[in-house]
C-alpha cells in the first residue's frame, strides 16, 4: 500500500495526467458532480455519486459507429473507429466499479463489441472508498463492500492522506509511476477507516433488503403479478432511471443524414420509451405497465438468468434520488418480495 499527503493531490493528478488523460468527479455548477477531464484548476469533488454514472466512459450516451457515402445506387461504408487514448478514471465508487462487470458481461461476451472493448482496454480505474454513504445506498445487498472497493487501484481518503492499493497489473504499473510522490505504508490507518465505513453501512435504512426472492428462474413467479399495475401507476415513462443507471445498457442504432453522407450512431435507449419495441406492424409492449415490468424484470430476473445469478443493479441509489415520482427498484423489490402488500 502507498500513501500520499492530500496536500500533494494536485501533484499526483499532474503526474497521472502526464502519461494518460485523467478524469475525476468535479462540480457541474448545478449542485451535482460530473466526471471532468483534469487540468490545472479542476478540483476533485469528493461527492458520493456523480449524476451520470461512469458508464459514459465505455458506453457513451451517443457515439458514431460508421459513416456512409451515397452516390446513385452505390454505397461506400467508412469504418471510422480509432484506437482510444489511454485514460485514468479517479474516484469511482465501489458500486460503479461493480457496474463495469455487469456491462462487461454484455459487451465483451461474443460477439465482442469492439467500440466498448477498445475504451475498456485503455482505462485504468482508481476506485474510492465511501466515507459518507447516503440513505439511498444499498450496495451491500449485492455483496459490494464500500470499504474495499475493487478496480485497478483502490483508494481511501483520511483527513490528511490518500491511501492507494494496486489490485491489478495495470494498477501496479500506474502506482509505480507515482512512486516519487507516494511512500510505502501498511494498512494501519486504513483498517480503522474501513471499520468505520462498515459500521455506517450497517445503519443504512435500506440495509438488509433481501435479494433472496429474485434471480434465476423467477420469471413465472413475478411476470403476471398484479402488483406491476399498481407500481407503475404513476410512472411517467421518462428515461431518467435508465439514463442515470450505471448498468442500463440498452441502446438504439440510428442514422443521421448530414446532407453529404449518413452517420450511423448508437445512443442510449430506454425500455421505458413507447417506441422501444415498436415495429412496423405493432408493439409487443404497448402499455407502461409492460415497459415498467421489463426494466425491473431485466435487472432482477432476466439478467441473472443469463449471467450466473449476477444482478444488473449495484445499489448505487441514483434512481432513488432522481426518479421524478420516486418510484424505484427498492420499492419494486420490497413490494414483489412481499415485504409490503
Amino acid at each position: 500500500m502507498r500513501k500520499c499527503s492530500l496536500s500533494k493531490l494536485t501533484d499526483l493528478f499532474q503526474k497521472i495526467n502526464e502519461s494518460a488523460s485523467l478524469y475525476l468527479p468535479a462540480t457541474d455548477n448545478a449542485g451535482g458532480a460530473v466526471y471532468t477531464k483534469w487540468a490545472d484548476g479542476v478540483e476533485y469533488l469528493d461527492v458520493l455519486n456523480t449524476v451520470r454514472s461512469p458508464k459514459d466512459f465505455f458506453f457513451p450516451q451517443s457515439e458514431n459507429l460508421m459513416e456512409f457515402k451515397l452516390k446513385g445506387k452505390n454505397i461506400e461504408i467508412l469504418d471510422i473507429r480509432e484506437e482510444s487514448e489511454d485514460f485514468v478514471i479517479f474516484g469511482v465508487r465501489a458500486c460503479d466499479v461493480k457496474s463495469f462487470e455487469v456491462l462487461d458481461r454484455v459487451f465483451l461476451s461474443e460477439p465482442v463489441d469492439s467500440y466498448y472493448q477498445n475504451r475498456r482496454a485503455h482505462a485504468v480505474i482508481i476506485s474510492m472508498a465511501c466515507m459518507r454513504p447516503a440513505d439511498t445506498c444499498f450496495c451491500t445487498a449485492f455483496g459490494i463492500d464500500a470499504a474495499e472497493p475493487a478496480g485497478d487501484v483502490s483508494a481511501w481518503k483520511t483527513e490528511c492522506d490518500l491511501y492507494l492499493k494496486a489490485n491489478t497489473e495495470k494498477g501496479a504499473q500506474l502506482l509505480a509511476k507515482l512512486s516519487n510522490l507516494t511512500e510505502e505504508c501498511d494498512d494501519s490507518e486504513v483498517s480503522p477507516l474501513q471499520e468505520k465505513i462498515r459500521n455506517i453501512m450497517k445503519k443504512l435504512p435500506l440495509e438488509g433488503i433481501s435479494l433472496e426472492n429474485f434471480g434465476k428462474g423467477k420469471t413465472k413467479e413475478y411476470f403476471d403479478s398484479p402488483l406491476w399495475t399498481e407500481l407503475s401507476e404513476a410512472c411517467l415513462g421518462c428515461g431518467t432511471c435508465t439514463f442515470v443507471c450505471p448498468t442500463c445498457q440498452c441502446y438504439d442504432i440510428k442514422d443521421f443524414d448530414t446532407g453529404s453522407g449518413v452517420i450511423r450512431y448508437r445512443c442510449w435507449d430506454s425500455c421505458m420509451y413507447s417506441d422501444f419495441t415498436k415495429m412496423a406492424h405493432g408493439n409487443s409492449r404497448n402499455t407502461q405497465v409492460e415497459r415498467f415490468r421489463q426494466r425491473f424484470m431485466h435487472k432482477l430476473v432476466y439478467y441473472p438468468e443469463n449471467n450466473d445469478g449476477l444482478f444488473s443493479c449495484v445499489g448505487c441509489g441514483r434512481c432513488l434520488s432522481k426518479c421524478p415520482i420516486s418510484m424505484n427498484i427498492v420499492k419494486v423489490m420490497k413490494a414483489l418480495g412481499g415485504e409490503k402488500k
Binding site: T219, Y251, D269, C271, T277, M279, Y302
Partner: peptide, 19 residues
Amino acid sequence: MELRMKCGVGKCGRCNIGA
C-alpha cells in the same frame, strides 16, 4: 418469431421474451 431488433446479437436489449 420476430420482434423489434437493433443489434442482432442480444446486446441492445429490446427483443427479449423473458430472459
